[in-house]
Design a protein around this nucleic acid. Structure first.
Lengths: 203, 203
DNA sequence: AACTTGTAAGTAAGTAATTACTTAATATAT
DNA sequence: ATATATTAAGTAATTACTTACTTACAAGTT
């Protein structure tokens, strides 16, 4: 396995972390045992507790790591002011979200498990991603309303509407998605959502 | 507690079921112990296994029960043909979804936990609710396109877009929602979403 | 009424396996 | 030689689930 080969190069601590990320994302916190993590990482179980004092600490370290990783999902939003093309802005945002959440379910599953299982860092996790995207898009929409390009509609709700269309589509496909269900053409989905939204909000 | 008083009237089997629903919804399958269920239901732990041969069987019984309960979320969609008012149709659907998912998080949490934890009945659970609503709305939109009232846009994607806006809003508020975060005015949210969507899809 | 019988409801105490976590000894590297 | 990495073998507590026993209650027979 290429994954194993990569892991052999990693430090013990990182082997534990990477394996734990996979397992916690797949089975949640209480569904994952420390023995399982150790076996999967080919590491003695006691080493987990040498690096992280408790199982909860390991979980917290994982979420903190995910929080600190600059989510490049947010990059296109920072270039908002540079372009005047609404369609391009919303398209690139949607595509970024698809690439970030759709390609690998680990992130989405981790985020959902942490919320459902009520982890203390779940709130921060959520704020870093979902809330932050909402605020950036909120700013953009507000500006375009002031420009007179968009209708005088609640900018935060509009932002949530657009994000909701995209995110929920991905969640249904990736989190609830069955094997048999065929994946949709991302480009067509994005085009349709952006058209629908812009036709609805443009003056 | 009124809940406890109600439970006293229930049969042992129903006491177990109701308590298990609460606990599985709050802490997931692997996060809930049979002893916990027994204690919370004021029932001897052995009785759980008299009624359900395994913990998994109990979980399956719960999901099956939820699946069989006619979801009244779907009622307004069946009256689609009776009215010609698009705005009223989408508004009543959105309000229904808010009432069904927003009032009590039990259902949403159960649905999400079952998907994340990969329960065998999760797929059927999903189809009964999410997929079914999608199909009903898909039919309506398709009809309105043929009527010439809506643009010639992909009807399934449009349906998913609208449902996505609403559902994701509720999920963020109820599943990820923190105590401090103030709940939005449901009516305003629905009005904004329906306006946005209809302006986008109407010819 | 009294007694037997059958069946379901309920319980206390146990099972073996697994849990998160520890300890104390050993290997390795500097 | 000193510090660090790694390990086998433990710990007490908890897990899902079982066993063997008692109680409750209704039906049938005398």
């Amino acid at each position: 396995m290429s994954i194993l080969k990569e892991k052999e190069k990693l430090s013990t601590r990182d082997k534990i972390l990477e394996t734990a990320i996979e397992l916690f994302a797949n089975k949640g916190f209480s569904g994952t045992t420390t023995k399982e993590i150790a076996d999967e990482a080919s590491v003695n179980e006691a080493l987990i507790f040498r690096h992280f004092s408790t199982k909860s600490d390991l979980y917290a370290a994982i979420i903190e790591k995910k929080i600190q990783e600059e989510p490049d999902m947010l990059i296109p939003l920072k270039k908002f002011n540079e372009t005047g093309d609404d369609r391009e802005v919303f398209k690139s945002l949607a595509i970024r979200i698809f690439e970030n959440c759709g390609a690998d379910t680990t992130f989405l599953r981790l985020l959902h498990f942490s919320a459902l299982e009520g982890h203390e860092l779940s709130e921060m996790f959520f704020d870093t991603y979902v809330d932050y995207v909402n605020m950036l898009l909120f700013d953009y929409i507000q500006t375009r309303i002031k420009d007179g390009a968009f209708k005088d509609i609640d900018p935060l709700l509009s932002a949530k509407a657009f994000i909701g269309m995209v995110i929920n589509f991905i969640i249904v496909q990736e989190l609830f998605g069955q094997k048999k269900r065929k994946k949709a053409n991302t480009n067509k989905v994005v085009e349709t959502f952006v058209t629908l939204f812009l036709e609805g909000i443009k003056k």
